[in-house]
Design a protein around this nucleic acid. Structure first.
Length: 156
DNA sequence: GCCAACGTTGGC
DNA sequence: GCCAACGTTGGC
């Protein structure tokens, strides 16, 4: 049973254009246990990913990606030169994991957070909940279908 | 830059 | 186990 996810990234750090260029990336730097658990225990090869731009001028869904490698230990946790270094993570018992994600496509227009909030049928989306800070959240098939529809509409 | 919301840490 | 203090996230 495959899943659909929304994954946040700050475009100043890594944007949909960066993913388009690199084609595949290791989704490194997840340092939240709830997000880690979903990433480590539930994400599977073939899962679809909505790529979300956060903490920027126009927050919203920027494109689509796909999980191409299931979870494995996040090497940046063991790299003292990485901003994601965690001295308490033991290589023999890794604390943090990542998956590999592949670019599918960039939407012609960002589906903005404001637009998501205004769309009937998306009221229960995890990312729209007040105070939500999780960088990885599940998306239902219905929500995904609505968002794909939105991505195809003009001036979306 | 502000600040609400949330997660983590650490003293007790 | 409680909870205050602190750090981070992320929209605005």
């Amino acid at each position: 049973m495959s899943h659909i996810w929304l994954m946040k990234s700050e475009p100043a750090t890594f944007s949909i254009a960066d993913l388009q260029e690199s084609k595949i990336t290791g989704w490194e730097g997840v340092r939240n246990y709830q997000a880690r658990n979903m990433l480590r225990d539930e994400m599977q090869v073939g899962d679809r990913v909505l790529f979300y731009h956060s903490n920027c001028a126009i927050p919203g869904i920027a494109g689509l990606a796909e999980v191409v490698r299931a979870s494995y230990p996040d090497p940046t946790a063991f790299d003292p030169s990485s901003p994601y270094f965690d001295e308490k993570s033991d290589p023999t018992n890794p604390r943090w994991y990542q998956v590999d994600v592949k670019f599918i496509r960039k939407f012609p227009h960002i589906i903005t957070l404001a637009q998501l909030r205004a769309t009937f049928g998306l009221e229960a989306m995890w990312v729209l909940r007040k105070g939500n800070r999780l960088s990885i959240t599940p998306v239902t098939a219905k929500e995904y279908a609505i968002i794909l529809q939105l991505s195809e509409t003009e001036n979306g």
